[in-house]
């Protein structure tokens, strides 16, 4: 079998555009899932059961069903009544999915901050909410970095699933090129390498962040 990478080179700008769309989605989803996950965790731990119950249900729902199904549901299922642009559906779907996973991490790390920290803050005169904001959450966040990093690497790879609903990210971008060039092997190996590179950089970032925060743990 002979390899021919010329179509890959021809369509490389299209692939790069796909990387751009995927990265944009990933950045928004990362922000949404981390901030949202933190809120969900804080509410479900500190606010009374009646408020936190729907949130627990939401976490349970997104963690026990496949991402692809969630995307299909939001895009085609809800599409019967309201057609949301694919990229928004992708951001919302991925965002909620990883928000649930991140919330799970934050719940564990918030609970891992010792009661002595809470008492020390309260004894200085900080209120309950201020203690959560200034003392508990920052410490929990630092402890969450390794697992958040792992989740975000998974999330970046999962942006490829958005091709199923037509978001023009990297995998989707390659599909047209493959259909005209008949060179799936070459395209997919190059795309795999691109994901690999992105993840290497993310892992380096994660290692750097962990090292930078180690002395604050």
């Amino acid at each position: 079998m002979e390899f021919d990478f010329t179509p890959v080179i021809t369509y490389f700008p299209t692939l790069l555009k796909g990387v751009g769309v995927g990265s944009l989605v990933a950045v928004i989803v990362a922000f949404m899932s981390i901030v949202g996950g933190l809120l969900v965790a804080v509410i479900s731990i500190y606010i009374n059961k009646i408020v936190s119950w729907p949130l627990r249900f939401f976490i349970w729902l997104f963690m026990t069903t496949p991402l692809l199904l969630q995307l299909y549901f939001l895009y085609f299922g809800l599409g019967e009544w309201i057609l949301i642009p694919a990229i928004f559906v992708g951001i919302l779907g991925l965002g909620f999915h990883y928000m649930a996973y991140n919330a799970d991490i934050f719940v564990a790390t918030i609970k891992s901050v010792s009661n002595g920290q809470y008492e020390a803050s309260r004894s200085l005169g900080f209120g309950h909410a201020a203690t959560i904001f200034y003392i508990i959450v920052p410490q929990a966040f630092i402890r969450s970095i390794p697992q958040l990093g792992n989740n975000m690497i998974l999330m970046v790879k999962d942006t490829s699933v958005l091709s199923a609903i037509g978001v023009a990210e990297l995998v989707y971008a390659s599909q047209y090129a493959i259909s005209v060039s008949f060179r799936p092997f070459e395209f997919f190996i190059v795309i795999a390498a691109m994901y690999y590179l992105i993840n290497i950089f993310m892992e380096l970032g994660q290692v750097w962040l962990e090292r930078e925060t180690a002395y604050r743990r």
Binding site: S114, G116, Q117, I135, P138, Q139, R217
Partner: peptide, 8 residues
């Protein structure tokens, strides 16, 4: 046990 805030 001191309970200093380790992140500060």
């Amino acid at each position: 046990h001191f309970n200093l805030f380790p992140h500060l």
